[in-house]
Amino acid sequence: MMVQSPDQRTLSAALLVEQGNPADDPRMFRRCLSQYGTGVAILTTADGADRSAVTVNSFSSLSLDPPLLLWSIDKKSRSFPAFSTCKYFAVNILSSEQIELSRHFSSKVVDKFESVEWAAGRFESPLLAGCIAHFECSVDARHEGGDHMILIGHVKQLARFEGIPLIFSQGQYNIPCEHPDVPAEPEAIADARPDTPSNNVLQQIFNAHHSLSEAFEEHRRAEGVSVAVARVLASVCSYPGIKADGIASQTYLGQRDVEDAVSELAKKSLLTRADNGGMQLTEAGLALREAIRERWIAFQDAQLEGVPSPEIAVVMRTLSRLIGRTRKQEGNATVAVDGG
């Protein structure tokens, strides 16, 4: 029996955000691809004293026998000439603590290796410190892939380290956490493992942040914005004149996702951009930001209903100390979030 293809809007109860031909809207294509979460890797290679690197999330396993992997590089990348001719490369899989390293190697810094810790691998490709895995590869094949080149690597040497992987999904950095539908391990076993997510204070903070962000999604949809757009709104509202790289640093969004959000806001006349790249919200943009903020306050009150004030005060003091300590260590400004 032939089954007719249903309309996309009837496939499930999930709310349809957008649909269409990706050839008509490349940004929509990229946003849809971002629904598939990936790890984050830095690819490195060396030719004598010349070293090159690029941050990617296109890394994937390909074959176990022989051990092959693949990734792709944008032909417009400054590192493309090096990787299009190299004989060897290394894959550095980033840990949850290496967001800044990811940004550093996707920036326009000329010598990206000058300020980071690394060592030459078996084939001279740089291996970055703090990663949770290294794969040292010879180039097995290269293939054309539209505006990218696909590289297939034959793994010659590998290493795995303890740590939590860095995840990139829906335009922002994330960390993996236990799914609520997965049966928990016995309490006695969990108690015997102080490094498990349930006993890791900082990971619990990350988990709470992402859980609350997901729960707040219906309010963003009601205002017609995505996570990225909401965070760019908050950042520009707090720091008028801020530029795209500053927003990326504050919001933990990828540079492309910041540019996409800025383009969307400008198209809707919610934001203006000066010749020097500095941004300002229009009156309509400020009104939208305020509407989201009011929703966040109401959402926060609902989430904290029934929690004793002394407990909230203890949490606030602890978080304030952590924030103050990291600011002193790193000199970071407050991270802009969609609600706060």
Rank of each mutant, 00 (worst) to 15 (best):
M2W: 10
V3F: 14
Q8C: 13
T10P: 00
L15E: 15
L15I: 09
P22Y: 06
A23C: 07
R27M: 12
R30L: 10
R31V: 06
R31P: 10
L33N: 05
S34T: 04
S34M: 11
G37L: 05
V40E: 07
I42V: 15
I42F: 04
T44D: 01
D47R: 13
R51Q: 14
T55F: 04
V56M: 02
V56I: 15
S60L: 11
S60F: 02
S61K: 05
L62A: 10
L62C: 02
L62W: 02
L62R: 03
S63T: 08
S63H: 09
S63I: 09
D65G: 09
P66G: 02
P66Q: 01
P67N: 12
P67G: 08
P67V: 10
L70Y: 03
P81A: 09
S84F: 00
T85W: 00
C86P: 00
C86H: 05
A90M: 00
A90I: 01
N92S: 07
I93Y: 04
L94G: 04
S95C: 08
S96P: 06
K108A: 15
D111H: 13
E114N: 05
A120C: 03
A120W: 01
R122G: 06
R122L: 13
E124P: 00
A133S: 13
D140S: 13
A141C: 05
A141I: 02
R142A: 06
H143M: 12
G146H: 06
G146V: 07
D147L: 03
D147F: 02
M149F: 04
I150W: 06
L151P: 01
H154K: 12
L158A: 12
L158Y: 11
A159Y: 04
R160Y: 11
R160A: 12
L166N: 04
L166A: 07
S169F: 04
Q170V: 10
P176L: 06
C177V: 10
H179D: 15
V182I: 14
E185R: 12
E185A: 14
A188I: 13
S198H: 08
N199D: 07
A208L: 15
H209K: 12
E214D: 14
R220F: 04
R221V: 08
R221P: 01
A222C: 02
E223F: 13
G224I: 00
S226K: 11
A228V: 03
V229T: 13
R231W: 05
L233G: 01
C237V: 11
G241T: 08
K243G: 07
A244M: 12
D245H: 11
A248P: 10
S249G: 12
G254L: 02
D260I: 06
S263K: 10
L265H: 03
K267S: 11
K267I: 00
L270S: 09
R273F: 01
N276V: 01
N276R: 07
I292L: 14
R295L: 12
I297R: 12
I297S: 10
D301W: 03
L304R: 11
P308W: 08
E311Q: 12
I312F: 05
V314S: 09
M316I: 06
R321V: 11
G324Y: 01
T326L: 10
T326S: 15
Q329Y: 02
E330L: 15
N332I: 15
T334M: 13
A336F: 09
A336L: 04
G339C: 05
